[in-house]
Simulated assay, not measured.
Amino acid sequence: MAKSVDLELKKAFTDLQIKMVDTRKKIHFIDSQIELLKRCMHHVDITQCAISCYPPGAKTYESVGRMFLLTDLEEVKNNLKNRDTQLTKRASDFQKNKEYLENNLKESEDNIREMVQQRRVQSEKTN
């Protein structure tokens, strides 16, 4: 009977370890996505600062794919503001997802510790 309990604990331990590794990979991916979004937001900020000193009515071009279209200065400013808002929202969504995964990872680690403790107690009782 002790052998079957050990096998069950071993299987549960392995499953939890796999879950932890997967969660760590997801957290690492989210961190890289957040850094990418921060770089894009920085680029938008720099562009907004550069455009802010242009006189009204200045010719501005906005990139669309591999071409540039003549666009009104106010429209370019609005597009940059919208892009900044979208990037900020996505970054906050990624941050919330990361926090959820970190909590999930902590819970998995606690479960593994509890399983190890149960195994120790069980082995002490049999000896």
Rank of each mutant, 00 (worst) to 15 (best):
K89A: 15
L87K: 00
Y54S: 04
D15S: 13
K77Q: 14
V5K: 14
I34E: 01
H28R: 08
K81T: 12
L69S: 05
R24V: 00
D72K: 00
R39Q: 05
V21I: 15
L101E: 01
E102F: 06
C53T: 15
N127Q: 09
E99Y: 12
T126K: 10
N127V: 14
R119T: 03
A91W: 03
M1N: 13
K10T: 05
K125W: 08
A58V: 07
Q95C: 08
D6T: 06
F29I: 08
Q118I: 10
Y54F: 14
I112Y: 08
K81S: 11
E114C: 05
G65C: 01
L16M: 15
K11T: 11
R120T: 15
L16E: 06
L16K: 14
E74K: 15
Y100Q: 08
S4H: 11
L69H: 13
I30T: 00
Q117E: 12
A50P: 03
N103Y: 04
L37H: 04
I30S: 00
H43T: 07
L101H: 06
T47Y: 04
S63G: 07
E75N: 11
Q86G: 06
P55G: 12
Q117C: 05
P55R: 15
I18Y: 12
M41K: 09
N97H: 11
I27P: 00
R83H: 04
E109A: 09
R120S: 10
N127K: 12
K81Q: 10
L37V: 01
K96M: 11
E107L: 13
N79Q: 09
N78H: 10
N78S: 13
N79C: 05
H42N: 04
D84S: 08
L16P: 00
S92T: 14
K106P: 02
E75F: 09
A91R: 04
K10Q: 04
D72T: 00
H43I: 05
D31A: 01
S52M: 04
F29V: 09
L87G: 01
P55F: 13
